[in-house]
Simulated scan of single mutants.
Amino acid sequence: MTLAQAGFLLTTAIIGGALTAIAGGGGFVLFPALIFAGLPSINANATATVAGWLGCGVSLAAYRDELSAQRRISVVLGSISLIGATVGAVLLIYTPTVAFDRLVPYLLLFSTLLFAGGGKITSWLHSHLGELNQASWRSLIIASFIQFFIAVYGGFYGAGVAILILAALEMLGMKDIHKMNALKMLLMTCMSSFAVITFAIAGVIVWQPAILMMLGTIIGGYGGAYYARRLKQHLIKHFVIVVGFLMTCYFFIR
């Protein structure tokens, strides 16, 4: 790895860490950067997961107040995320690269539209399932079922998973974007933790760029989370939607 490549990967990781903390989508910065650096796509995907792992974890420090107010749902959904992400990571190892490359833009389009129309979907859920409340076990069971499949996708590929998490949380009646972001970062950390273990055992991680980019995502992740909490909620939501559509367009064109 040359000095120019190292500088490029570090800068990209800082941007990716901040983007993940604010709205999700950091994987769409980290993954292409590693491809440009010459890594095969499977190795780039696994290495990008490692690179974003500590960035997600460190950003939790900026959300400690929001997480302390919702401990039960954090424990339940966090545990489900560990299981689902492990399943997804194993699926990735045994899936041909061409197959998941073709699937990614469609999943992103679906998740972005889901988040953009979250208000209408929430109203539909309320009318058919009754009032959803994250403090009830009924709602936790529904949330756990949805989160398991999101976590499978998160372990399988990961890019855009933040948008899926935010969409699911909004459907389940959460209104505060800062609390949603706090849970998003917690669940993404849980997903990455077990995915990293699986990828490490399989030997598909390239550690030199992974460690360098891990440093960048730590810087960007904490800074992004810090400033995201000081922005107006509707601005953050609009930013998430714009990022989602931009990422979707990129991967349809790619």
Results as ranks from 00 to 15, higher is better:
I197D: 02
V242S: 05
R138T: 01
A225W: 11
A6G: 10
G24A: 08
I73A: 12
I197C: 03
G221S: 04
A159C: 01
G7M: 13
G203R: 00
L82F: 15
A62Y: 07
C56S: 13
F252C: 02
I80V: 15
L231K: 10
L108R: 08
G221C: 09
L9W: 09
M180Y: 04
G154W: 08
F245I: 04
P105Y: 08
L114H: 00
V242R: 06
A195V: 02
I241G: 03
L246N: 01
G88P: 06
A168K: 08
L172Q: 10
A167L: 07
E170H: 14
F31R: 00
G224Q: 04
P40L: 00
V29R: 12
M191L: 06
L212H: 00
M174H: 04
A168G: 00
W124Q: 15
G17F: 11
R71K: 15
Q134S: 04
W137A: 15
H128Q: 14
L34N: 13
I15F: 11
Y250F: 02
S111N: 07
L103C: 00
L67V: 07
S136A: 02
I241R: 00
L67A: 12
I236K: 10
G220F: 07
G38Y: 09
C56A: 14
R102T: 04
I165N: 08
I80F: 15
M180F: 00
A210V: 10
M185Y: 05
A195E: 02
E131Y: 13
Q233S: 08
Y63S: 12
V196C: 04
L186T: 01
